[in-house]
Amino acid sequence: MELGSRWDRFRRSEAASGYMLVSPTALYAILLLAAPLGTIILYSFLTDGYLEIVRTFTLANYHEAWTNELYRTVMLRSLGVSMAVTLVTVVLAFPVAYFVSFHVDPSRKSLWLFLITIPFWTSYLIRVFLWKVILGFNGVVNSGLMGLGIIDEPLTFILYNVNAVVITLAHAYAPFAILPIFVALEKIDRSLLEAGQDLGESRFMTFLRVTLPLAMPGVIASVLIVFIPTIGDYVTPQLVGGPEGRMVANLIQLQYLKLDNYPLGSAIAVSAMGIVTVVSLLFLFLNRRYLKGPKS
């Protein structure tokens, strides 16, 4: 009786409806995110046998992942590529977001945002292939430049290397970077910019002292949104990266699918996750003063 009435009360409480609302997502996340993640972490401590996984606990996989020169090089390259992609994407996204927020007529803003998302209408794979067409040996860029007589023979440094990966990923992630910055800029009270000028600062100095610091939460969000997924991207390096453009995800894929070494693949994956987490937290820590603003 006591339990029954308590259950009744819980059923009608706000907490109950909260749990009800999150439960499908929570279930989904547990089954499809937490469970596989746990399996991968478990695998990374097991030993690889022939056609099977031996259930003996070992740290050998991590030792291999962290000491092998190849893995280290690829990991560092992945970090470098992601950072370059992040830098290029955010630096190019900021002016776009700024333009839409400050110079587009308010009634046209949603149209602009809609146009910015147009690249999503085509599949990611097709977009990557298109970059191959653009950057290729006989591609748009090379034939264009040759047709104009600027170069005599096709440029080879634009495809099948790290540059191509950076260009392709920067393009793919541009909308993800533009939107958070746009939102942060939209929230800035325009009278603050007038106040900056009223207090004697030029437009440029007002931008540096008022607009930019207030847009930083958006910039930080953009950096994380671009940096975290790009480090694990494997389609783009596979298609346009060439041998020297391989990234850590390609290595993990290799371990899993070609070499059938699940434990080592898992150890590399977990290590990569750890590195991304550490780098991201470090970045957040360095920018913490921009993130503690008012809750409003």
Binding site: S191, L192, E194, A195, G196, D198, L199, G200, V210, Y290
Partner: peptide
């Protein structure tokens, strides 16, 4: 003469206090 070069200062209706 732009706003930043004028010998005037303003108290805005919203006060425009820099929140950061």
């Amino acid at each position: 003469v732009p706003a930043n070069k004028r010998p005037t200062n303003m108290v805005f209706q919203s006060y425009a206090i820099f929140p950061h």
